[in-house]
Nucleic acid binder design. Structure first.
Length: 395
DNA sequence: ATGTTC
């Protein structure tokens, strides 16, 4: 970068964007993720990049960052516009993980307005379905998405927890999902024409973006309602629902969040892993953190590494039954390894970093009981498959 | 992350 613009040349660039990463030295942040922060900071119009303690490398843009600029860049939000985490109280008489795990519905199967017209989960839809988008409605998706039945563990702030209607021992559904194909379609429509460039028609992008954000939130409610009904409980309103992939207009700037939750006076569920607690926090992040907090534990390993190392380290059985005694419903073997707790950083360290930087106050933990990822093959199909393997071995 | 992708 030239420091001396010639008089006849273009205007000198504005001051370079600042980058602040809110992680202590004990928190391992990959150099690739820091490099991505610097690359984002060098974009035209960029003002400030705030890296959260769960920062890790993404594709071109880091995950776990809040990035403010005078220019709107759709790729900084990514394809899963509207992805977020919601918490729904649920009341059950007994919560035996092994039993309840078998009662989760197939959340790969979309809710169809005609075929599933009598599904009680529809009751959560008030008014129009955003963008009229029915594809994938009521499905959880893949990757790090899940629906989890959890129990409130340690309560650090009883008054705050009580205001949310939560106390130790209470059951909740934690839903992490996004806008499925809708957000992907919106980003693709942009990148096909403009690549990683800024939004040419900001108003049009924001209109679609806002629909995806509403769709994601509605989908989390539908997922919780489907599971609540299947477990024999009544659906409830979320006590927490924050989106961590979105852009917000703030102080006349575009504040992009990618794997970073709004932290300005909001309550946020910061996801641990399926085998560790999650933390419900009261967030109070200021401008230095771009008004944002972490969204999860953050990956420690790439999916490829987690698969390779996990196969050497873990059996399928130990991944399906976690150290906290919870059960993982995941018919996809590869996903079981990719999402193993050992593939993530320690959530306690992430939360400690937020506390030390005065970005958030822990309110309570939630401890997993059943984490649903993808449907298990039905028992008949499974025994058929086993018989098939034996047959081949003998032959 | 994603009815994608060689």
């Amino acid at each position: 970068m030239s420091l001396h613009a010639s008089p006849s040349g273009p205007l000198p660039p504005s001051a370079p964007a600042t980058v602040t990463v809110f992680a202590s030295p004990e928190s391992w942040i990959e150099s690739d993720a820091l490099r991505e922060c610097q690359q984002v900071a060098a974009l035209d119009g960029m003002i400030h990049v705030a890296g959260m303690p769960d920062l890790h490398p993404g594709k071109g843009a880091p995950i776990g960052a809040a990035m403010s600029s005078t220019v709107l860049y759709p790729f900084l939000v990514g394809s899963d516009i509207g992805c977020g985490i919601a918490v729904f109280p649920i009341k059950l008489k007994r919560a035996v993980p092994e039993k309840l795990a078998t009662r989760f519905p197939d959340l790969d199967q979309p809710l169809d307005p005609e075929r599933d017209a009598d599904d009680p989960a529809w009751a959560v839809v008030a008014g129009e379905i955003p963008a009229g988008h029915l594809d994938g409605l009521g499905t959880v998706g893949r990757g790090n998405h899940f629906v989890e039945l959890a129990r409130v563990g340690t309560v650090f702030e009883p008054d705050h927890a009580a205001r949310l209607g939560l106390a130790t021992g209470d059951l909740v559904l934690v839903v992490h999902s996004g806008s499925r194909g809708l957000g992907e379609r919106i980003l693709r429509a942009h990148t096909e024409v403009h690549g990683a460039g800024p939004a040419a028609d900001v108003a049009a992008y924001l209109t679609s973006h806002d629909e995806a954000v509403r769709w994601g939130s509605l989908n989390r409610r539908l997922l919780a309602a489907r599971v609540a009904h299947a477990l024999g409980a009544e659906p409830t309103e979320p006590v927490v629902d924050e989106c961590h992939n979105l852009v917000e207009i703030r102080d006349g700037r575009y504040l992009h969040r990618k794997g970073a939750a709004p932290g300005d006076g909001r309550d946020v569920l910061i996801a641990g892993t399926r085998g560790t607690p999650s933390y419900l926090v009261a967030a109070h992040a200021g401008p230095e953190a771009n008004h944002s907090v972490a969204h999860g534990a953050g990956r420690k390993m790439s999916r490829a590494d987690a698969l390779r190392r996990g196969r050497a380290k873990h059996t399928v059985e130990e991944l399906r039954r976690t150290p906290v005694g919870s059960v993982v419903v995941c018919g996809e073997r590869q996903l079981l390894f990719e999402e193993a707790p050992s593939a993530y950083k320690r959530i306690e360290r992430v939360v400690a970093d937020l506390v030390e930087h005065d970005l958030a106050t822990p309110v309570a933990t939630t401890i997993p009981l059943v984490t649903y990822k993808t449907p298990e093959p039905d028992p008949a199909a499974r025994s058929d498959r086993r018989a098939g393997h034996r047959g081949r071995r003998r032959g």
